[in-house]
């Protein structure tokens, strides 16, 4: 029954998020470090506070963050907060809240990453399907596949470096770094700001698309070849169908199923998938923020970003679970397998 399938999936969604949140809570505690003390020691060293002052501050902050309470109490508060998407204050950037940081950084990351994932997927799938098609002349493959093999195995940031050097530095066609023009204030309500953001996003998007699309295309090409060997491909041709119907409805439609699962997984990594590209383009995005939070041992920021990440993956999987039976009738909502 469709409803019970839905309920079961929702239950699993919560189970995954809860488990991840718990692991997320336990792990930093196992590290045996005290983030507040470390923070204070840095301040003592740099600003020359007295020992007594520092200890008083440590006590105050520990109480403020609730780190003096018993572990189970901390855990319950934490889980309750996670459910409300409230991750408390950042230790390093007090008094900014974690959610506030995630939103302000995420705004810079999300648009360009989402756009690049979708461009990569669409472009890669179509290109791959075309390359794998037995009606495409062989020389096209011979021409296009070798560079794609190279691109797909090169890290994105290397492509980013090359693009920065040639397109931005030598030819001065596009800005070298930053998420938006330095002369602008971040204002998501204004069109000019969006234009500035878009212009700055071209190179990062391009460096992700070149790599990702090559990967999708190579995978899709292999799938197409497999599907073309199937009996239904031969029979479709024997039915005298038009070339385009065979291509889209019989070949591409079937070859598309595995990459779609891949897309769901890829979407789960929206937030952190681009952290290296972000750092090469000096985006102050979520990826670099996560790196910083690990370096500074900012418990709460770390909790927040990782939990959001897990939620994204769980949600993407959930959405895929919901639509997959529509795409592949062999997977039904009723099936209990797996």
């Amino acid at each position: 029954m469709t409803l019970s399938y839905f309920v079961r999936r929702v239950f699993f969604l919560f189970l995954v998020v809860w488990t991840a949140a718990t692991i997320n809570f336990v792990l930093p505690h196992l590290a045996g470090r005290d983030p507040i003390k470390e923070q204070m020691l840095i301040q003592i060293a740099s600003q020359g506070r007295t020992q007594a002052d520092a200890e008083a501050m440590i006590r105050t902050y520990t109480r403020l963050f609730g780190l003096d309470r018993p572990l189970w109490e901390q855990y319950l508060t934490y889980i309750g907060n996670v459910m409300r998407l409230d991750f408390g204050y950042s230790i390093n950037n007090y008094p900014r809240t974690v959610m506030d940081i995630i939103i302000s950084r995420g705004r810079l990351t999300l648009p360009f990453v989402v756009v690049s994932i979708f461009i990569s997927f669409t472009f890669g799938i179509l290109l791959g399907a075309f390359l794998g098609w037995n009606r495409t002349p062989q020389w096209v493959s011979n021409l296009v596949v070798p560079p794609m093999l190279v691109l797909s195995s090169v890290p994105q940031f290397l492509v980013a470096l090359v693009l920065i050097y040639f397109v931005a530095f030598r030819m001065r066609l596009l800005p070298m770094n930053g998420a938006y023009p330095r002369t602008m204030v971040e204002d998501w309500g204004s069109l000019t700001f969006w234009m500035g953001y878009a212009k700055h996003a071209i190179l990062p998007i391009l460096s992700m698309v070149l790599v990702d699309a090559s990967g999708w295309a190579l995978g899709m090409r292999a799938m197409m070849v497999t599907v073309e060997g199937e009996d239904y491909a031969t029979f479709a041709e024997a039915k005298g169908l038009t070339t385009w119907r065979v291509f889209f409805r019989y070949l591409l439609r079937n070859a598309l199923l595995p990459p779609l699962t891949g897309l769901a997984i890829r979407l789960g990594f929206i937030i952190t998938g681009a952290s290296l590209v972000e750092s090469f383009f000096a985006y102050n995005g979520l990826g670099s923020t996560l790196g910083g939070a690990i370096g500074n041992f900012d418990y709460f920021l770390l909790y927040g970003i990782v939990t959001i990440m897990v939620m994204c993956i769980a949600l993407a999987t959930f959405v895929m679970d919901m639509i997959y039976p529509l795409l592949d009738p062999r997977i039904s909502y009723k099936a209990q397998r797996g």
Binding site: E230, D231, Y232, T234, F235, A236, E237, A238, K239, G240, L241, T242, T243, R249, Y250, R253, N254, L257, L327, D328, P329, R330
Partner: peptide, 22 residues
């Protein structure tokens, strides 16, 4: 292409797999 099915048609070999699964 038009002659296929309207003039000559084929009953394929692999009955299990000759129809588009989706």
């Amino acid at each position: 292409r038009k002659a296929r099915l309207s003039q000559i048609s084929m009953i394929p070999q692999g009955a299990m797999n000759s129809l588009n699964p989706v």
